Amino acid sequence: MNKKISHYLELAARWHVFFLLFIYGSGKLLGGQFYRRGHLPDEIANTPLIELSGFDLAWSFMGYSYGYILFIGISQLLGAFLLLFEKTKLLGVLILIPILTNIIVFDMIFFDKYGALASAILYFLLLLLILYFNKDKLKKAIQSLTYVKKEPTTFVIMEKWKTALIVALIIGIIFGVEQIFVNLLGH
């Protein structure tokens, strides 16, 4: 594909995802999404849980914790803003892919209308397109993160067993401490 066309397509994908996720992220922070605790619509507050739709249950659950709303909204805004800059676009994609994966699964499970799901899938596909256009950079980054220097094998096998035993012991200690806290603080 022509380099200039690829550049324009990537830029359009980045800007499109930025604008829409900026709107969604801001909406979360400004109270435009979710039924917030203390601000439930009367028809939701007065309906038995068993009679609520999946959407209403999900929207109420997601709105229960303002801290969670802040986390999701700020994460969406951060990832979206990182898409705007050449040096940070891949970091933005890597932040947004798990967020959009969660949104897609959430919408598939809880919603009975699929407009929001279609939009989330489109944003996800646009992020994959950005990764595709940057596949060489991504490949280098993965190789850099996963490169392991080859060592002679005779001594290495004994060292690996020793390391595995020490790590297993440390994991056992960490697990024990964790369980003490879980039991003290409750499940």
Rank of each mutant, 00 (worst) to 15 (best):
M108R: 05
V148H: 09
L126I: 04
I142L: 15
I174T: 13
K162W: 10
R36H: 11
L11E: 11
L138A: 15
L21E: 04
I180S: 05
I50L: 12
L30T: 15
K140Y: 12
L94N: 14
I69L: 03
L82D: 04
L96Q: 01
Y35P: 00
L77F: 00
L30P: 02
L165N: 05
G73S: 05
N102Y: 12
W15G: 05
F106P: 01
I99M: 02
E159A: 10
L127Y: 03
A120W: 00
G115R: 09
R14K: 12
L169C: 13
K4I: 15
T154G: 02
W59R: 02
K135Y: 10
L77Q: 00
D56N: 10
L125Q: 11
E178H: 12
H187Q: 14
L84Q: 02
F133C: 10
Y123W: 14
L169A: 14
A58Q: 11
I69G: 02
L117T: 03
S144Y: 15
R14D: 01
Q143K: 15
V93S: 03
K3F: 11
G73A: 01
F133K: 04
L40F: 08
G38A: 06
H16E: 08
M1R: 13
V167I: 14
L90M: 06
K28D: 03
H39F: 13
M158D: 11
P98N: 01
I23M: 08
E10K: 00
F106Y: 15
G115N: 13
V182S: 11
I44M: 02
L40N: 03
V167F: 10
V93W: 03
T47A: 07
L165F: 12
K89I: 01
R14P: 00
L9W: 02
I173G: 00
E151Q: 09
L30E: 08
T47D: 02
L122F: 12
P41K: 03
S65K: 08
L52E: 01
G172C: 01
L122M: 12
K160C: 04
I173R: 04
Q143R: 13
I121D: 06
I95W: 01
G186K: 02
V148R: 09
I130S: 04
V17I: 06
F124R: 00
I104L: 03
V156K: 07
V93P: 04
Y24M: 07
S26C: 10
G31N: 00
F85Y: 09
E178G: 11
S60I: 04
L77K: 03
Y147F: 15
F106M: 10
I170E: 05
L100P: 01
N134L: 05
K162Q: 11
I72T: 11
L129Q: 06
W15Y: 12
L70E: 09
